[in-house]
Nucleic acid binder design. Sequence first.
DNA 1: TCGGGTCTAGAGCGATCACTCTAATAGAGT
DNA 2: ACTCTATTAGAGTGATCGCTCTAGACCCGA
Lengths: 196, 196
Amino acid sequence: MADTRDRLLTATAELFRRQGYNGTSVKQVTTAAHAPFGSLYHHFPGGKEELAEAVIRTSGDAYQQLFELIYAGAADPASAVTDFFDGAALVLEETDYVDACPIGTVALEVASTNDRLRAATADVFAGWMHAASSRLQSAGIPPGQAAALATTMVAAIEGGFMLSRAARSPEPMRSVGRLVRQLVVAALAEAAASTR
Amino acid sequence: MADTRDRLLTATAELFRRQGYNGTSVKQVTTAAHAPFGSLYHHFPGGKEELAEAVIRTSGDAYQQLFELIYAGAADPASAVTDFFDGAALVLEETDYVDACPIGTVALEVASTNDRLRAATADVFAGWMHAASSRLQSAGIPPGQAAALATTMVAAIEGGFMLSRAARSPEPMRSVGRLVRQLVVAALAEAAASTR
DNA sequence: TCGGGTCTAGAGCGATCACTCTAATAGAGT
DNA sequence: ACTCTATTAGAGTGATCGCTCTAGACCCGA
């Protein structure tokens, strides 16, 4: 069945979120996925590392789609930012500060210890930044500025997750979102002024 | 000797930086610290967890002192921000992206799995934000706005570490720093305008 | 010179780690 | 009905995990 593979991926993503890469054992994964132990090594012959890379890339894509969905539903780039940060804050609150970015914890863990996984996280971050950057450019912000703004948005989201989870409070995420919104508003105003 | 304890703390901080809490074994710690294995449990009877808490708190204090040092040497709050972010970017570059925040990785790892360590990281972050906030208030920014700005600074630093380490590039940290500086400049201008 | 703490030193403990191996089963094509 | 491949199933592997335990070394006041 192909869905054993999917169950392994989603169970691993869930576990990575709350306890990271090193804190998650393969036994835990197969138990949570209701999958036989041997199946993990059938679907991911490279073992834990291959599983982790697949989780990083698929979770990264899923998160990007969430971003695009929110962006599409928002009136303008500035309110998209608010929707995204406030939405993340709300989800954190409702899930007891567990349901955060499935990439962030792993990204820091592997950055200096596993180049394959490090590269996978870098690809995911680059994809997010590219998506955000092109939206901002479509709204009239020049490429260089849009890229810097997109980088800051991603950094702020990840930093917001860290602070909100540590403090067990949605406030850091919301505060950060308001200031990122301010940056977007300023960039849009500047762009509008220069094209006039 | 009290300095065995210190060697254990600094060696652990170094290891936590590059491989996190779960990725660091106590055997590794004692080897790196050139300390006998038994000494770890003499100085930290609570074992790995007690050691980790001590590392979180002492490293947090050390980082705060670094911030205050940079702030004291800067001409104004805005250039202090630039100095801090660009300094972090430079250190990352020079240390092969290893010498980042010793708290960040651990904070995400333990946020949902170890309440004692989670509380320690929350205390450290709160200390940093309080320090930054009071500096900003001294520069004339109202308390609520200063607190939000301080939160965003810390989130941006941590997010910048994550992106720069993943991409193995100092650029994300620098880009984020420039935009955080812009927020500080705007807040200072607003404060100056309102007191006139 | 002698006790009595502090600290060093590392062998050894059960538990758990990621992973391998063999065997049974399922399902599709002929 | 009969393969043949894909997948399930889990016992068993050596290595490593955090930690305990005992024994010796060191230092200081009496």
